[in-house]
């Protein structure tokens, strides 16, 4: 996992609530046996018409989307299926953080396991960001802050161990493997 300490980027806005993982990456693209290459399928059914041509009105097809690494979405983003292909597709496209008032549990867990930062903010901050598409903001993982262009800073919650892993660029498997003596003791007790 690639470490993430701070991230400064313009935002990309998707205001709809309840954007589900079937929209993020439709099931017919879950056919890979690797993690790479899903970025071109991200939001495929909103992004492309039935004939495969890009829909010009969709945010990812607009010039201002180019290079944006922070997605600001309506509440309950990532609901539905547990497919880790959703964060894989977002990361492969270039998104490194998702900001919302609420993120679905499994999506949030999957995101953190892959270095995609989930940022939960209050209604007012979310509403402001959604009303100001493309502003440049800065995320600071160590401080757990989101800095807005008007110099306001809002804090967001981040599970301490996930934060540690993000900052160090390490995955959790190493930690779990180190628990082996405790796991063996548990298995003897059980």
């Amino acid at each position: 996992m690639e470490a993430l300490t701070t991230l400064t980027s313009r935002t990309l806005i998707m205001p709809a609530a309840n954007i589900d993982t079937d929209q993020i990456i439709p099931a017919r693209f879950l056919t890979t046996t690797t993690r790479a290459g899903l970025g071109s399928r991200l939001f495929a059914d909103w992004r492309y018409a039935a004939d495969g041509s890009p829909r010009p009105e969709f945010i990812l097809n607009r010039p201002e989307a180019a290079g944006a690494r922070i997605l600001v979405a309506g509440r309950n983003f990532g609901c539905g299926s547990s497919r880790e292909h959703a964060p894989w597709a977002l990361l492969d496209y270039g998104i490194r953080a998702v900001v919302s008032t609420e993120l679905a549990d499994i999506f949030c867990t999957n995101a953190l396991k892959n270095g995609l930062l989930p940022v939960i903010v209050d209604e007012a901050t979310s509403a402001w960001l959604l009303a100001h598409p493309g502003v440049e903001v800065t995320l600071d993982v160590a401080a757990m802050t989101l800095a807005l262009p008007d110099r306001r800073t809002v804090r967001f919650p981040l599970e301490p161990f996930a934060r540690h892993c993000l900052l160090q660029g390490i995955d959790e498997l190493g930690f779990l493997l180190e628990q082996r003596p405790a796991i063996e003791a548990f298995e003897r007790r059980a």
């Binding site: 964060p87 779990l176 082996r180």
Partner: peptide, 22 residues
């Protein structure tokens, strides 16, 4: 409960998951 593929790997390797109590 449902888990993602990274966690599938964790369980395959360690039979355990890291979890905050819901």
């Amino acid at each position: 409960f449902g888990i993602g593929t990274t966690e599938v790997g964790h369980v395959l390797a360690t039979q355990c998951l890291l979890q905050r109590k819901p």
